[in-house]
Design a protein around this nucleic acid. Structure first.
Lengths: 343, 343
DNA sequence: CTGTTAGCGCTTTCAG
DNA sequence: CTGAAAGCGCTAACAG
């Protein structure tokens, strides 16, 4: 078992009795180098399976070729797909992607950004935790001159490049659709509304009612503290406990929706005959659920591509752009069988 | 907007009229340094929000403090949870985690490992793509002296530290359970069996039959080329087209299982009354599915922790260990309502 | 065409 | 207690 040490340009230079710079030139097919020398160097490099040391290069060039992305969690279809979009975009531009998850922990988020700064990544994409209320750590990045784009989850009052999805519009579409199918008692299981995205979904729900002259009844809105399926179960229990009439539920996302459906069924109601249910996100299981889940699809892959593109654009144009980019993508309602249809 | 340049130790040294080494010592509370100097340096560092350059440090110390993990894909509950386990373990040891996905592409896997080598990560965890048949890129890592552990997906004939789950056992448990509930015509939707894990699940299926004296009928085994829900749909169609009697399906994973259930329902059969279904993985939606999905749970988080631990152990003991670690974790059958119960 | 020099940011001997 | 010097691996002028 050989030593832990990798071959360097200097090793090769010594063995060949030439200078390190000659080796370097040979390796990069610099114009002025004799075919002979080049051949020798290449052979020797091959023999020792020489690999350039990225750290040394990065230190020298003051760029690492790494773009970092911080997501709250990695499991959902949403973020996993964003990551695919980002990955495809950055790797086609020759960059590497450093993926990290904050697990919705503010402390973790700070630490990760800190690490990325120390590592001197060339750019950062971030979707903040829903506990992120102060932005000192973002400003530090900006001050360090590292391009940053915030995606999916908005940070009101904080200036930066942003790529968002119009959650308001998605929610509005979903609820208006439910109204058009004749539902009059539409409940909403809201996520933590400290969270702009979830607040927007709530607003979409409210305004769809308003615009269609349906009175809003606060007892039909339940706010949960999280957005996984078990929160959906709790929220639905709470909702059904009141014995208020409910003929539809618009859930803040698909995970919550399937939790709610379990409760609905347990209580002896049918979906969609008694209660229509619409989720949000179009998770991979949504179309295979029973009944196939109506939901709101978001252009997630595009979201990733676009966010990455914006970071990349920063490298192209050296001079500071004056204003930040602000892009909003449109979601689409996907009607399946968990909601009754118009006819 | 200040320059893109970060404050260095030299900047601080100059401003204070001391030498860089003094600054360095102050920053690391080296014993021999005057309280006065130290205070000044610290104040100045604070003022410029000095951040050490990790690249320079890594170059110097020949260690980056980064551990890389390559997974085939990031979306599934399985890998996402492994990553959590790994992350918790490595970050408690002060390491950073570089997460990458190969998207089941062998080329991508090679490229990622190459990048990690160039970046000089301190260790690598990898779950190979199912197209990985040659191991030159793994050997290159080993030769570079980078500790590597292979997890979840075995590479027969390739020597390395490995942490696996006993898929055979999980499958055996599932199928034996189906037999005990009285099922006689158990079908299996297998994944690509080029894939050791899936082969093991098939073997578990076969041996459970054998040990219980149930004849195996090849027409009840369908091999699919992938393992997402749509493959489950295709496979189930194929299975049902034959009109062979089927009273249970053991699917290679949950995604395939829910695809299959959709087909079963479309054909007018009930789950589990007509056909019991058992999956594998215990995805997050499994318990909220209708009917709640019986499946095989794997100690995924532990898998991640243990794999990370093994890499970390390499750093502790400098000298080469003589033999590779080989750990196999046991899965557990989770009975829910998509399979009939024993009584 | 090739070698020498300097330096990226930092730490660590070795001398004062 | 502090400074000078060397070096991690590499490249890019600048000389020859």
């Amino acid at each position: 078992m050989q030593k832990n040490r990798q071959t360097t340009i200097i090793d090769i230079a010594k063995q060949l009795g030439v200078s390190p710079s000659t080796v370097s030139r040979a390796l990069h097919n610099h114009p002025s180098i004799s075919a002979e020398t080049k051949k020798n160097v290449l052979a020797m490099a091959e023999k020792h399976s020489y690999q350039p040391n990225l750290l040394a290069l990065s230190l020298l060039n003051k760029k690492t070729g790494i773009i970092g992305i911080v997501v709250p969690e990695i499991t959902s279809y949403f973020f996993a797909t964003v990551i695919s979009g980002v990955q495809d975009m950055v790797s086609s531009a020759g960059y590497k992607l450093l993926i990290c998850q904050s697990n919705e922990s503010f402390e973790e988020e700070k630490k990760l950004l800190q690490d990325m700064t120390l590592l001197r990544v060339d750019g950062v994409l971030i979707s903040p935790t829903f506990r992120t209320k102060t932005f000192g750590h973002f400003e530090r990045l900006q001050r360090a001159g590292i391009p940053m784009v915030i995606f999916d989850r908005d940070c009101p009052h904080f200036e930066a490049d942003k790529v968002l999805v119009d959650s308001y519009d998605g929610a509005y579409q979903a609820v208006e659709y439910l109204i058009k199918t004749g539902c009059q008692h539409i409940a909403h299981i809201a996520g933590p509304i400290a969270f702009p995205t979830f607040k927007q979904r709530l607003d979409g729900y409210l305004n769809a009612h308003y615009d269609n002259n349906i009175p809003i009844r606060s007892e039909l809105i339940v706010y949960s503290n999280g957005f996984s399926s078990d929160y959906g179960v709790d929220a639905a229990m709470q909702l059904m406990a009141n014995n208020d009439r409910v003929d539809a539920i618009f859930a803040v996302n698909d995970a919550v929706a399937i939790g709610a459906i379990c409760v609905i069924r347990e209580k002896g109601y049918r979906v969609p005959e008694d209660i229509s249910v619409v989720g949000f996100d179009d998770e991979s299981y949504a179309q295979y659920y029973y009944p196939p889940l109506s939901t709101v699809w978001q252009p997630v892959y595009e979201l990733g591509m676009l966010s990455a593109k914006i970071v990349l654009d920063h490298f192209a144009s050296k001079e500071q752009r004056e204003n930040y980019r602000y892009e909003v993508l449109k979601p689409e309602l996907v009607i399946r069988e968990s909601s009754i249809s118009i006819d």
